[in-house]
Design a protein around this nucleic acid. Structure first.
Lengths: 152, 152
DNA sequence: CTATAAGTCTAGTAAGTCAATAGGGTAAAT
DNA sequence: ATTTACCCTATTGACTTACTAGACTTATAG
């Protein structure tokens, strides 16, 4: 399960992707739009900034904005920054491998083989999906809904 | 990330799958073979028993054994029992759906669409892999290694 | 029938994580 | 100079994790 923190981060980035190129967005504005506790969101956005995903501007007219265009920020990057490795077990993580303390022979560990498949499947999805893709999918759903509405 | 508890459960079940049909196996024997703290393993096996995955026999000659054959226990079942839902977010879980408190419109939540894909991919792997499959894959690896060994 | 082997069950606990909240500090625009 | 808004540190309460301790119950062998 993803933590609330990660979920909030993704929702905030979704907003900032939508507003990309239109100047900074206030923390309070993002908090309001997504129903996120403002002070908590502050910490999250700061962390995303320190990780190079966001930039900010202080003072009046300030706020946060994406450091790179939405099509070059993947969901996988964000999840890794907030949550740590995607892998279900440290011994199948590519980005931060660690052997299991109790494991006698890693190469013949059946659990590991299965969890490696899970890791690969997860990474394939999250690393190939960008914030731009997320927006596109949302638009498609909304458009579909409106189409349905007219046809009734 | 799976907890140690879940990892230990899977390793213990792997042992019990290998010994299936040959009578009960001692907690201490499993603990020794897999390097798991015996008292902790005790709690885990008890829980697996209460969930109907294991059976036990008390007294001398007792121990734990699988309640059903290895090919009808899936890794997904075990992970759900020990860890809870496979879904990265409660709003995409099939077995224990819950809406996100802060979400204004679930149907057009982009994060949700992506995480649903992750859930489906994970479930597809874990629910279609049984303990018997795990053993088979381990055997394949070991056989491959021996083949390689002779060819040197 | 009783010793002993083995699982059952209840507590407890130290350490860590989560989900915030509080309350100033600092930079930048007007 | 003042206001706006991000920056940073600390704390808190609830919960989870990973165990450990110890008494209890049941079953089998002799």
């Amino acid at each position: 399960m993803l933590s609330n923190k990660t979920k909030y981060a993704l929702k905030a980035l979704q907003v900032l992707a939508k507003e990309y190129g239109q100047g900074p967005v206030l923390i309070s504005e993002i908090a309001r739009r997504e129903n996120i506790p403002a002070k908590f969101l502050e910490l999250i956005l700061l962390e995303l900034k320190n990780q190079g995903i966001l930039q900010s501007k202080k003072g009046k007219g300030g706020g946060y904005f994406l450091a790179r265009p939405p099509q070059s920020v993947s969901v996988g990057q964000v999840v890794r920054v907030m949550e740590g490795p995607l892998a279900p077990l440290p011994c199948v993580s590519r980005t931060s491998y660690m052997r299991c303390r109790e494991c006698r022979d890693e190469r013949s560990c059946g659990i590991r083989l299965v969890m490696k498949d899970v890791r690969d499947a997860t990474a394939k999805i999250l690393d190939s999906t960008t914030l731009a893709d997320v927006l596109k999918r949302v638009e498609a759903v909304v458009a579909g809904r409106e189409g349905l509405h007219y046809s009734i």
